[in-house]
Design a protein around this nucleic acid. Structure first.
Lengths: 356, 356
DNA sequence: CGGAGTCACGATAGCGCTATCCCTATCGTT
DNA sequence: AACGATAGGGATAGCGCTATCGTGACTCCG
């Protein structure tokens, strides 16, 4: 045997080995194959015999091996950094969004840079800095998905980006949404089915394109049901609790008052409930109130809100996936295949609505 | 000049170079120094002349260089992965917590693994899997900071961990909190200063050690102010909106009813406001209501809640920092210096309290 | 004035992995 | 039988950075 001849010269310097765990070399030795074969198995490449694959996988399990993300990135020259810009959407939204994207980022071995991007006058500078620092792509949750200045930068620098929950995503972006129009239509129809004929609508922030789609859905449902659209029943809002307070006061001051209020998000719906209560009205006995988003407010309000649930975590997961695909495509010289995903919403019936 | 002799043999294989940006070699060339000097500057090592440091920094700026996290981790043998376990605290809390820790994780170049750890019966398995996969440390926000089964695993496997906002952190953990007792005392004193003599207290979930500290603060303030502690005025709660509803009903059914209600968190305080309104009581005219945490609910309620603000993002940043220090210490064979940080809280006065 | 100590900095060898190139055994084809 | 085609798998060279050690230029002191 030539085993001792093969040994490398004794290391005089102390080893710099860091990982407590096994390395790919250990696995290769254990399985009796080369490093590359182990690597192939781990990356699911095709040209490995089933039997070999199993042997390697057993070795991996036996040694409790988990690959070093750092080494993989470095070797594959595929370090991907994705910027996730956010600007104070409701806490619940951001939260679920973050969890979904973090999970997907970990799964696909990309680094997520989470950046607050609050004040409009600083936005451009922040995005520019990210781009300059070599970010590989951007995720734009609402309301940033509709920000013109960010769009311009993205297009100028040809940075792959995904808009989430934008009403009408720019042509050079991938996007992930639910069908806001259809969802609002379904909710309005639901109220009509309960017998409501005067349905107040609190619109969302006009700067977000989803707002007008929700309004459109409301109008479509009225029309389909043979009800006249009454401009007085639509009042402006900004997606904030405070704006919901004011909007509801206007609606309930109408004569005759609406028997149902459809707020464009849950914050405003919660505000509507609060105003109704303070006016001595019962919800849903005197007015039904429904929201949109299924934010935490929906269940920390009494009565709990009937609302539209968006699969936010799934959407953010999909957004990361799409972005990574686009980035890899661009790196390989392929044209990224912009895709516009539409995910299913769900009408969640709780206790804030009832027959008219 | 020997410049052309120095050139490496023409590369026949295509370069595997990935980064669009500059590498440390580019910076070194630009600044006219060696790689190591650049590395030293970037890591803030002491033994570099001020003049050289500046030259390097200029080169870095000129090339808009940013180092590859993957390469740094690999070379320094210092890849650190931290597990952040969470279990459905309020969305606002988790949110701020995540943002803070993500930021600090990015800054210190460690990888954050965010893990949902909801159901008690699965917790142990999840934590064990994380540990087996070679996680280097754990962050335990409430309520997991007080979970006995997790504590046991952490101690058994000697995994560095930091408990955040635990009332009485286990002896083998580092911790970061605010002084819950002092904060509750301050809030109670605030109500007493406003002239309230009958102050209802809604306790928090007894499984979380912070709950009893908040109650203790309430009692301490009463005693210091010469008021008798009245057991009837303290009702149990679970930190949930729903439990706040019930607790408030009990408090307001008392005769005489309290003129102020101190809820152990904002969810329950929001519930208290809701119940008061439905009973036709004005807040704060008929009852003052105050909360704890400064969660989003505090400002999406009318009237906005007076509450105690914890610097959650700062706390999570500190937790990550502490954990990284502990991990590095352990790797170098030093004993980690367990530390118990206490950060400043703030009483935020809004519109839900008034003189008795 | 020579040797020890200090300081700023350079040369080099990896960190753990994958891309690339290359070799071998096996098969079908003529 | 000779040939190319095609798996399946090995050897090697980096990816971009830092740890370690080496080196020359200074200081300091007996």
């Amino acid at each position: 045997m030539a085993e001792d001849i093969d040994q490398p010269p004794a290391r005089t310097r102390s080893s710099r080995r860091a990982r407590a765990g096994a390395t790919i070399a250990d696995v290769a030795r254990e399985a009796g194959v080369s490093l590359m074969t182990v690597s192939r198995v781990m990356n699911g490449k095709a040209n490995v015999r089933e039997e070999t694959r199993e042997r390697v996988q057993n070795a991996i399990a036996a040694l409790n091996y988990s690959p070093s993300a750092a080494a993989r990135n470095l070797a594959a020259a595929s370090e991907i950094r994705i910027g996730l810009l956010y600007s104070n959407p409701s806490a619940g939204y951001l939260n679920e969004f973050l969890v979904g994207s973090l999970e997907q980022a970990a799964r696909t071995n990309v680094q997520l840079v989470v950046q607050l991007c609050e004040r409009p006058q600083e936005r451009a500078a922040i995005v520019r800095r990210l781009i300059d620092s070599g970010i590989d792509g951007l995720i734009l949750p609402p309301p940033l998905c509709d920000a013109q200045d960010i769009h311009r930068l993205v297009q100028q620098h040809a940075v792959p980006a995904v808009a989430v929950a934008s009403g009408q995503p720019a042509s050079f972006l991938s996007s992930v949404n639910v069908d806001d129009r259809a969802a609002a239509e379904a909710m309005t129809r639901h109220l009509m089915d309960l017998g409501h004929r005067r349905i107040g609508f609190i619109a969302g922030n006009p700067d977000q394109t989803a707002s007008s789609l929700r309004l459109q859905g409301y109008r479509d449902a009225l029309e389909a049901g043979g009800l006249d659209f009454e401009p007085d029943l639509v009042v402006p809002g900004l997606f904030t609790y405070r704006s919901g307070l004011e909007a509801t006061q206007r609606l309930l001051a109408l004569a005759p008052a609406p028997t149902a209020i459809f707020a464009s998000n849950d914050d405003m719906a919660a505000a509507a409930v609060s105003v109704a209560h303070r006016m001595g009205l019962d919800v849903p006995g005197d007015v039904a109130v429904v929201g949109f988003d299924d934010a935490p407010q929906a269940t920390t309000t009494w009565p709990e809100l009937t609302t539209i649930r968006q699969p936010i975590a799934d959407m953010s997961r999909a957004a990361v996936q799409q972005l990574v695909d686009d980035i890899r495509a661009a790196r390989e010289g392929r044209r990224p295949a912009l895709r516009h995903l539409q995910m299913a919403f769900e009408l969640i019936r709780r206790e804030s609505d009832a027959a008219a």
